[in-house]
Computed example of a mutant assay.
Amino acid sequence: MSKMLKVTPGDDYTLLVEFEHGNSILFHMKDLIETMPYSSLKDLSRFKDITLEEKAIRWPDPVPGEAALYPIRLTVDNILFAIRE
């Protein structure tokens, strides 16, 4: 699988994921944000606060008291699985 090179979050809760060899995916997260693990990302500024790890997109840990699972990460496999559904 190609390495993720860049991720650009959009105002419409999309992620433009760019890979080596010129491939990219535009992933719509609107429905996913309605689920428990990602619900803290409803705040658009929080959604846009991403870090690219070797094999995942990561958001900062929520402040104590927020309903979320730790850590909030999204791997390429998660994205591909969601697209298949």
Score class of each variant (00 low, 15 high):
Ser24Ala: 15
Gly65Pro: 06
Thr75Leu: 07
Asn23Arg: 15
Glu18Ile: 14
Ile83Pro: 04
Ile33Glu: 02
Trp59Met: 06
Leu26Tyr: 10
Asp31Ala: 08
Val17Pro: 06
Glu20Pro: 10
Thr8Asp: 14
Asp12Thr: 09
Met4Arg: 07
Thr8Lys: 15
His28Lys: 06
Met4Ser: 10
Lys42Asn: 07
Ser39Ile: 09
Leu52Val: 08
Leu32Glu: 04
His21Pro: 12
Asp77Asn: 11
Glu18Asp: 15
Val76Cys: 07
Glu34Trp: 03
Pro62Trp: 11
Ser24Trp: 15
Ile25Tyr: 11
Gly10Lys: 09
His28Leu: 05
Ile83Lys: 14
Phe81Asn: 09
Ile33Ser: 00
Lys30Gln: 11
Val7Phe: 14
Glu34His: 10
Ser2Thr: 13
His28Arg: 04
Ile57Asn: 02
Met36Lys: 08
Arg84Ile: 01
Tyr70Gln: 03
Phe81Gly: 00
Asp61Thr: 03
Lys3Met: 12
Val63Tyr: 07
Arg58Phe: 03
Asp11His: 13
Lys6Tyr: 15
Pro62Phe: 12
Glu34Ile: 01
Pro37Gln: 01
Lys42Val: 01
Met36Leu: 11
Ile79Thr: 02
Glu54Met: 04
Asp77Ile: 09
Glu34Gln: 12
Asp12Tyr: 06
Asp11Leu: 13
His21Phe: 15
Glu54Ser: 07
Leu74Gly: 01
Glu54Thr: 08
Gly65Lys: 08
Val7Gly: 07
Ile72Arg: 03
Pro60Gly: 05
Tyr38Ile: 04
Ser45Asp: 09
Lys30Leu: 10
Gly65Val: 06
Leu5Ser: 12
Phe19Ile: 12
Met29Val: 01
Glu85Gln: 13
Arg46Lys: 11
Asp49Met: 07
Tyr38Ala: 01
Ser2Leu: 15
Lys3His: 12
Ile25Gln: 06
Lys3Asn: 11
Ala68Ile: 06
Asp11Ser: 14
His21Val: 15
Ile57Ala: 03
Ile79Phe: 11
Thr8Phe: 14
Ser45Val: 02
Leu74Ala: 02
Thr14Pro: 02
Pro62Ile: 09
Leu26Trp: 09
Phe27Cys: 00
Tyr38Gln: 00
Asp61Trp: 09
Leu5Pro: 11
Gly22Thr: 13
Pro37Gly: 01
Phe81Cys: 02
Val76His: 07
Leu80Tyr: 13
Glu20Lys: 13
Leu44Tyr: 03
Leu16His: 14
Thr14Arg: 10
Thr75Asp: 05
Glu54Gly: 03
Gly65Met: 08
Met29Phe: 04
Gly22Cys: 14
Lys30Phe: 09
Ala67Phe: 12
Val76Glu: 13
Ile50Arg: 07
Leu74Glu: 00
Asp12Met: 09
Lys55Phe: 11
Glu20Tyr: 15
Ala56Asn: 05
Ala67Glu: 11
Tyr38Lys: 02
Gly65Trp: 10
Ile83Phe: 12
Arg58Leu: 06
Met29Tyr: 01
Pro37Ile: 03
Arg46Trp: 04
Pro37Cys: 02
Glu85Trp: 05
Ala68Cys: 07
Ile83Cys: 05
Ile83Thr: 08
Ile50Cys: 09
Ser40Tyr: 09
Ser45Met: 02
Gly10Ile: 04
Leu52Met: 09
Lys55Tyr: 13
Glu53Lys: 11
Trp59Pro: 03
Val63Ala: 06
Ile50Asp: 03
Thr51Ser: 09
Pro71Ile: 01
Pro60Phe: 10
Glu18His: 15
Ile33Leu: 14
Asp43Arg: 05
Leu74Lys: 02
Ala82Asp: 10
